[in-house]
Amino acid sequence: MTLVIGLTGGIASGKTTVARAFDALGADVVDTDEIAREVVEPGSEGLKRVVDAFGEEVLDDSGTLDRTALRRRIFADPDARERLEAILHPRIETRVHSRIAESRRPYVVLVVPLLVESGWDRLVDRVLVVDVDEDDQIARLQVRDGSTADEARAALAAQTDRASRLSRADDILDNRASADTLHERVRELHQRYLHLARDRTD
């Protein structure tokens, strides 16, 4: 069985940067955000179900899902988030299982923003948390998404708290350090994961 590392972290913690670093070292990165975009492409059954649930106001002028508008809806309404997850998660999980099964690299890094909250940690062998403090997350969200401070705080509140996330971690990457330090830590973890992957095949 392929070794699967669950990569998670709070919103705007730097998961994408870390995932790219693992990819460059030879890991097979499976990003559920990318798959989530695939399952709601124009013309897909997934997009039709989302529009049925939330209305055409979650579409942009081209008929593509407006992820920012949808994100604001679900962060403001926990019931809306549950409805969205019921539509998307089965479709995403089917593709995740296929890509893990097809992987020919030493191990898979499965990137799931809500790994612990959504129960996706059952699919992984180890949990790697990218960690920053909440003030950094709020500042990054305001820059990245044009969010207000209140919207950024609401986004954080929709996720599990930092302490709970860290308590579930097998490995932690502190993303408050320099880029060089972060990449050195990724290289160390890569060697550890290669060793664990070899142990599974011996």
Rank of each mutant, 00 (worst) to 15 (best):
L84R: 09
H89D: 10
V129Q: 03
L84K: 05
V111Y: 04
E34M: 07
I100T: 10
Q137P: 00
W120H: 12
A169G: 06
F75H: 11
I172A: 12
D133V: 06
S164Q: 13
D31L: 04
Q159E: 10
L47C: 11
P113R: 03
L196R: 11
E38L: 14
L166I: 10
R105H: 10
K15T: 02
A154I: 07
E34R: 13
D31G: 09
L156R: 00
L110I: 11
G43H: 03
A12F: 01
L156V: 11
T181Q: 14
L182P: 08
E151Y: 00
V186R: 03
K48Y: 01
T68A: 13
E117T: 07
T94C: 12
G10V: 05
D121C: 08
R126Y: 12
R198L: 04
V50I: 14
E34D: 12
R198C: 00
V111P: 01
G119T: 07
A69K: 15
Y107E: 01
D79F: 05
R20H: 13
D31K: 01
G6E: 06
T68I: 11
D136I: 13
V96F: 09
P42E: 10
L196P: 05
L114V: 05
G46V: 03
P78K: 04
A139D: 14
R162V: 03
F22P: 05
